[in-house]
């Protein structure tokens, strides 16, 4: 038994990634969970509109964080502001038609506001827009679509590319008369196609099974989803270029998925996270897809309201895809002056 345990320890010590995962991951998870795993939102971004906006702004419950007052706004502008996610609540301080409009797509923010309003009978009854029943599925399904896409895009792509290396065929490709970009695109495009089919299936299933609305323009959603796939597939290729086998690729892909599940705002609202953890969320592509999917599907957000998440996905895509192209080209280029990683490969076969 001792011999077996010693052998196992030796093998484990050689597998540095697994050791790092076993030691670092619990600490990271504990810290991240501690700071991120909160459903309560202390401050709900609020806009106060209507002729009596300034006076009303000072009488709101402290939980409602007034970020702007617009005395000139009416109900239409208020709804438009919510559609564009400029705030979670708009209080219309109009003596004729007072109203409190709440964005139901921001589930936890809306719940927080409703609780605050319930304790303050002097304010008008809240009107929840976009998701009047505050159904969890309305909020979760668009986010889960993103998770499914990142799962398929990243893991399946990374496995597909690393399989080529593992079977020794990458070397064969390197000596064939392909340009590196032919190999790269030829490798990635089929996964892109499959991911698009997956996207359609997931959207249709989400709408049909869970009754999630699709209030906005499909073309805006499609652009967001394609940009998101661009990043997810790029991550898959990048992971494959730093992995020697499929086990390593899965391990790395899972390590990129976990923070996206926890920190993208998919489950825990970004607004409730400590700032030290929240910025990690702003580096993750799922964060922006969740904003786009919820925006288009639930709030019917217009394109210009989603320029920031779209732009961020494009930026992340360019960075991740650029890096993956560079690394992939290096894999196909003749070795001899490469990094330690390439050297060790060459040494092994020398």
């Amino acid at each position: 038994m001792l011999a077996m345990a010693l052998k196992e320890l030796r093998q484990l010590a050689r597998d540095r990634r697994t050791v790092a995962m076993m030691i670092v991951l619990p600490v990271v998870l504990l810290v991240v969970f501690g700071y991120a795993a909160r459903f309560d939102i202390d401050k709900v971004p609020t806009i106060v509109a209507g002729p009596a906006a300034d006076e009303a702004a000072s009488n709101l419950p402290s939980r409602m964080d007034v970020i702007a007052t617009h005395p000139e706004w009416g109900r239409d502008q208020a709804i438009d502001a919510l559609r564009r996610a400029q705030a979670t609540v708009v209080v219309i301080a109009d003596p004729q038609h007072p109203a409190v409009l709440v964005d139901g797509a921001n589930l936890f923010g809306a719940q927080s506001v409703l609780r605050a309003l319930a304790a303050n009978p002097s304010l008008p009854k809240a009107e929840v827009l976009f998701n009047p029943d505050l159904a969890t599925s309305f909020v979760m399904v668009p986010a889960l679509m993103g998770l499914v896409l990142v799962f398929i895009g990243t893991i399946v792509t990374s496995l597909g590319v690393v399989r080529e290396r593992q079977s020794g065929t990458l070397e064969q490709l390197a000596v064939m008369p392909f340009r590196p970009r032919d190999v790269f695109l030829g490798k990635v495009l089929p996964y892109f196609g499959v991911a698009i089919v997956d996207l359609v299936i997931v959207v249709v299933a989400g709408l049909w099974i869970f009754g999630v609305p699709f209030s906005g323009a499909p073309w805006i959603f499609a652009i967001g989803a394609l940009l998101f796939l661009f990043v997810a597939l790029g991550m898959g290729v990048l992971i494959s270029t730093v992995s020697q086998n499929q086990g390593q690729a899965i391990q790395l892909a899972m390590m990129t998925l976990l923070p996206q599940i926890l920190l993208s705002g998919m489950i825990f609202p970004l607004d409730s996270m400590a700032i030290g953890v929240r910025w990690i969320g702003y580096l993750l592509p799922l964060t922006y897809f969740v904003q786009i999917a919820r925006g288009v599907m639930i709030r019917a957000a217009p394109f210009d309201a989603l320029l920031v998440p779209m732009g961020m996905l494009l930026l992340l895509g360019v960075i991740v895809f650029g890096l993956s192209v560079l690394r992939f080209q290096r894999d196909l280029a003749p070795s001899g002056t490469g990094s330690r990683h390439r050297r060790s490969e060459a040494e092994a076969s020398a």
Binding site: A174, V175, P334, S335, G336, T337
Partner: peptide, 9 residues
């Protein structure tokens, strides 16, 4: 591999 161009001398 040098001869086929997969390794640069």
């Amino acid at each position: 591999r040098v001869l086929v161009g997969a390794v640069r001398p």
